[in-house]
Amino acid sequence: MNTYRKFLRIWLTVSSFIGFIVGWVFLSHISSTPNGVTQVGNTQLPAIQAIPTLIGATTNTSALNNVQTFTVNTVTSQIQNLFSPRMRTGGS
């Protein structure tokens, strides 16, 4: 009985060690690309433009190229008018 226990311990230790070694070797040799996923061409993510600063947006002297300038207050005024129309006079 004592001999049987001793044998069982040794067998479990050795088989665990061998299993660990085999698993480690197996995992280190498989491809890094997961199954079912393939790389298509040289696809690149679009470059994200920097968000333009609002500094100078109320003037026509914006230093930003290809960015349409606008007047922040005018937009605000239009939104206000949308919710509460009021008769307004100022010439046309």
Binding site: S77, R88, G90
Partner: peptide
């Protein structure tokens, strides 16, 4: 109510 626009600053 009629708002009178400021001609120096129409907004």
């Amino acid at each position: 109510e009629v708002a009178l626009e400021d001609p120096r600053n129409p907004i």
